[in-house]
Design a binder for these strands. Structure first.
Length: 490
RNA sequence: GGCCCCUUCGUCUAGUGGUUAGGACGUUACCUUCUCAAGGUAGUAACACGGGUUCGAGUCCCGUAGGGGUCACCA
């Protein structure tokens, strides 16, 4: 049985890199019909950020990485303490009373003389009964790993390969802090062991602490799980992805209107590539659902080198998914996004007023243009509000038309429309197109110029969905309203 | 600085000794076209460098350079 886990700290929003690790861990567990666990690593009380634990759970749910069980380290406090004391009994650990200042001083002295500092406490071989006396008298203490001397170890990572290290390279690491809570090193080893984790996936930034973890396992005489240290996701400017340079929180991407499945798809291809064979020159498949990914995912297809987070390509993925949505799906997603994150309250009222049928007609028109859900607000605005009046000569699309020509076009449209007694609600877009083409011909003007002039007058924008489809949706009276502000005074 | 890792188009990558070094994003041009998109076609652009090994190296070995990670009672 394969059991994997994701072990975030509730010290901030769920990082997109953590989400990627979760994705791989999840996929591997599911592929093997195993379990995927969530473990909240909250042993650093000082760094806790309220609400982030809930956010982590919410994100895993939204992104579709459902966990089978959840645990929280502070709720397992007694377990770590018990095991730490067991290590003392085994002679693999010891109580240490050295102050941080002492250790810091020793470190500085070593560094000044150019030596590599390895901490070995003066309490390594301190008498156990005396130590207990000190503890009872209330003296603060930590429990440290008693690292054996002169030993060499080999460790094999499923992705990174073999690594070697010597025991003198590792500090007498703190296992249990003076507040009684375990350090990361003790807690992971115990938890992964007790929870039966078979594969630990985490970032390569953990590789330097592997010796500690190997030594702790040895101290307990426990077998180690398999480890896969995944390559880091880098910022385009270099270094780890950091929020100073752009969005990194899984939630922020959602707020910005990216689709979770698109983000997941993008993340899959960061460090993994599909094993599907393709012919010379033939396109490779890059669009995968989570289910397909689980099906295809193999550890051997994981890459060892780090990857730059390319936001352009992420946008492309989002666009692809958006275009593949049915109108109903798009409508649903937009509705959810808008209710949760949009600040366009006026627009929301207007959308409600016009109804779902109208919204869907509008969405149909902007469908291919939507890359982010957040862009919809802007794209559909012209169907809900009469835009601000513009100055035609400011648009280069129309610069070779004289004011008079513009005026003629607008006036004749208004005249023709007013001549018709019916409301034209039953005009399909073909009718509108025909109407405008005839009008262009009658006035001896190119259809393109007529269209652009009207486009600007009706929408105030040079880039919109096809004009006649816009006209079908707006209808005669709304069109007249929008044109009327120009006909007397251009 | 010590230890560890990485290095194919700008970016993500395919490639496991013999390839016209393939695909995707981006970008450019053209087609389509009422604008913008979408779609189509074509183009652009890479094996970090230097030594080996070999008939033959992007692929194997060794150096160099560059990049990254990490050195806490944080995870």
């Amino acid at each position: 049985m394969v059991i994997t886990r994701i072990a975030p700290s509730p010290t901030g929003s769920l990082h997109i890199g953590t989400l990627r690790t979760a994705l791989f861990s999840y996929a591997w567990a599911k592929k093997n019909k195993g379990k995927f666990l969530l473990r909240i690593e909250d042993t650093d009380q000082s760094r806790l950020v309220p609400g982030t634990e809930e956010e982590i759970e919410e994100m895993l749910k939204i992104y579709g990485l459902d966990y089978d069980e959840k645990s929280k380290q502070t709720e397992r406090k007694d377990i770590y303490k018990k095991y730490a004391e067991e290590l003392i009994q085994l002679g693999q650990a010891y109580y240490c009373f050295a102050s941080k200042e002492e250790i810091q001083e020793a470190r500085e002295i070593a560094e000044r003389s150019g030596e590599q500092f390895r901490f070995r406490s003066p309490y390594r071989d301190f008498d156990l009964d005396k130590a207990k006396e000190k503890i009872e008298s209330g003296e603060p203490f930590v429990i440290r790993l008693k690292v054996a001397e002169g030993e060499e170890f080999e460790f094999e990572d499923l992705l990174q390969g073999k690594m070697h290290f010597k025991s003198e390279e590792v500090d007498d690491t703190v296992l249990l802090k003076s507040d009684g809570l375990p350090t990361y090193h003790l807690a992971v080893v115990i938890d992964d062991h007790l929870m039966g984790i078979t594969h630990v996936m985490r970032g390569v930034d953990w590789v330097p602490s592997i010796p500690k973890h190997v030594l702790i396992h040895r101290a307990f005489n426990w077998e180690m799980p398999k480890y896969l240290h995944l390559p880091l996701v880098l910022d385009p400017e270099g270094g780890k992805l950091s929020k100073r340079k752009g969005t990194v929180a899984a939630k922020d991407f959602l707020i910005q209107g990216y689709l979770p499945e698109a983000i997941l798809n993008f993340l899959m291809l960061l460090g993994w590539s599909s094993p599907i064979k393709h012919e010379f020159g033939e396109k490779e498949r890059e669009i995968f659902s989570l289910e397909e990914f689980i099906e295809l995912f193999e550890l051997k297809d994981l890459n060892k080198s780090s990857a730059v987070f390319n936001r352009e390509k992420l946008l492309w993925f989002s666009h692809q998914y958006m275009m593949n949505f049915s109108i109903d799906e798009l409508h649903k997603r937009y509705g959810e996004w808008h209710a949760k994150y949009s600040e366009e309250k006026q627009l929301r009222l207007k959308i409600a007023e016009k109804g779902d049928k109208y919204l869907k007609e509008v969405l149909e028109l902007v469908h291919d243009r939507v890359r982010l859900l957040s862009e919809i607000d802007e794209l559909i605005r012209i169907f809900y509000f009469e835009p601000e009046k513009i100055k035609f000569n400011e648009f280069k699309q129309i610069k070779n038309l004289s004011d008079e020509q513009v005026s003629v076009i607008l006036k004749s449209v208004v005249n023709e429309l007013e001549k018709k007694s019916e409301n034209l609600d039953d005009w399909p877009h073909e009718k509108w197109e025909e109407f405008m083409r005839n009008l262009a011909e009658e006035n001896g003007l190119g259809a393109g110029k007529v269209f652009m002039t009207l486009r600007l007058a009706i929408t105030s924008s040079p880039a919109t969905p096809p004009l006649y489809e816009i006209m079908t949706i707006l209808g005669k009276s709304e069109i007249l309203t929008r044109l009327s502000k120009y006909v007397d005074n251009i």
